[in-house]
Amino acid sequence: MQKSSRFVFSALCFGFAFLYIPILVLIAFSFNQSAITSVWGGFSLRWYTALFNNEQIIEAALLSLKIAATSATFATILGTMAGLALTQIGRYRGRLIFTGLIAAPLVMPEVITGLSLLLMFVSLQELIGWPLSRGAGTITIAHITFSMAYVAVIVQSRLSSMDQSLQEAAMDLGGRPTQVAFDITLPLIAPSMLSGWLLAFTLSLDDLVIASFTSGAGASTLPMVIFSKIKLGVTPDINALATLIIGTVSIGIMIASWVMFRQSKRN
C-alpha cells in the first residue's frame, strides 16, 4: 500500500515536472539581469521595462486583444445560435450531418483552414471588391470562423444535457417562445456561453498560423511579432512577454473553471 502510493506520488511529480519546468525556467529568466538568456545575472525587471517601451510589441498586443475580444463575441453569438439550432428544432432530416459539419473545424489542420480562408478572401476581392485589403478585419473573420465551432459544441452539449421539459414547463405556464428563450434557456446556457467566449478569446490570442495566412501588410498580431522576432534570436524581453501571457491565461482559466464549478454545483 505504502509502496504503491509512493510510486503514484513520484509519478505525479515527474508528470508535473515535465509539464511545468520549461515554463518555470522561462518565468525565472524573464527576471534575469543578464542579456544572455542562458546565464543568470541576478534579479531585475529591466526586460519588463524594455517590453513596455517596445512600441511594436505593445501595438501588436493591443491589436491581438481587440481581435480576440471581437471574434470571441461574434463566435459566441453565432456558436450559440448553431448550438440552439442543432438541439432545439426537433428532429429533422440531416441533423446528424450538420452536427458533424459543425465539429469538423475542430479537427481541421490550421494550415488548411488558413489557406482556404486566404483563397476565399482573394477571390471575394476579385469578385465583389471586398475586402479591399487584408488585415485586422480579415483576421477577425477568420477567427470567428474557427472558434464558433468550439462555442457551438460547448453550448450544444449543455443544451442536450438540459431537461427538455424545462422549456415546455415555461411554455405551459404562459411563456411565449421568445420569453421562454430569455427566461429559461439563456440563463441556463449562460455559463457555457461564457466558457465558450473565454475559449474563443484564448484561441484567437494564441493563433499564429491562420492569422499569418489572412493578415495583410499592415496588421501583425502578437504571436506573429513574437515569431518573427524569434527568427532573429531570442531576446529576454520575449521571456517577460511570455510570463505576462502565462499570467493572463492562468487567470482566464481560473475564472472559467470557477464558473463551470458553480454551474455543476447548481445542477
Binding site: D163, S165, A169, L188, R266
Partner: peptide
C-alpha cells in the same frame, strides 16, 4: 397546466 414527471422546476 401540467406537472411534469421530472417536475421541471427551474433550477436558476
Amino acid at each position: 397546466n401540467m406537472m411534469f414527471q421530472s417536475y421541471a422546476v427551474f433550477p436558476h
